[in-house]
């Protein structure tokens, strides 16, 4: 079933600009994929429209993630990605919303698709983007007391601190050999 992306793009252009005006920045097709960039202020409304409008019917949220553009000096620094799929119409599209470094926050889409819950938690964990109104915004993959957000570009691959166990030279009374955890600053970035 081939999906006519150009037609869908035209429909999106008409409807989205009618509803949201200049808050919709661009609707493009690249590599056979439809991409819409919107202002972060309207992300929940735009997603609701995409889910409920009979022309679009994006009932299935495939994936939520983010990109950190800081290594390419693009502004705004982050972009949150929503990859959508329509199970009924078998078409896919991507919605993107820029998030600046000064206020890394965007509204949650958990009310539109409850499945966004863990994906937004992962994005928060990895990039430090706050999803406003999220029911349970905690770290999901990293330990709860972890400092920093690993997928940000400034975070080194080897980590900021490395932990290792060193045998203590002076055994404590009653303990012949004990292991004392030490923390050392990492010498170089890998």
């Amino acid at each position: 079933m081939a999906v006519d992306l150009n037609k869908l793009q035209e429909l999106l252009r008409n409807k989205m600009s009618e509803y949201y005006g200049d808050k919709v920045y661009s609707i493009t097709i690249a590599h056979g994929e439809l991409v819409m960039v919107v202002d972060r202020a309207i992300i929940v409304q735009a997603c609701t429209t995409l889910r409920d409008d009979p022309d679009f019917q994006f009932d299935f949220l495939s994936y939520v993630t983010a990109i950190d553009w800081s290594a390419m000096n693009k502004q705004p620094r982050y972009e949150v990605i929503y990859q959508l799929l329509s199970l009924k119409k078998t078409h896919r599209m991507r919605v993107k919303a820029g998030v600046p470094d000064s206020d890394p926050a965007i509204d949650t889409v958990c009310d539109v698709w409850p499945g966004a819950n863990w994906m937004e938690r992962e994005t928060f964990d990895m990039f430090g983007i706050i999803f406003r109104g999220h029911p349970d915004l905690r770290r999901i993959l990293m330990p709860e007391d972890w400092e920093g957000h690993p997928l940000r570009k400034e975070f080194p691959l080897g980590g900021v601190k490395s932990f290792y166990f060193k045998r203590s030279t002076e055994p404590r009374a009653g303990e012949p050999k004990n292991l004392v955890p030490r923390v050392r600053e990492q010498l170089s970035d890998i």
């Binding site: 690249a30 590599h31 994929e33 991409v35 495939s62 994936y63 993630t65 990605i81 990859q83 799929l85 896919r92 991507r94």
Partner: peptide
């Protein structure tokens, strides 16, 4: 320079790489 998402049906479900 490109930005692509490719999904396939893996044994567990939709496996996608972005």
């Amino acid at each position: 320079p490109a930005e692509v998402y490719q999904a396939i049906e893996s044994p567990k479900g939709e496996l996608g790489f972005f």
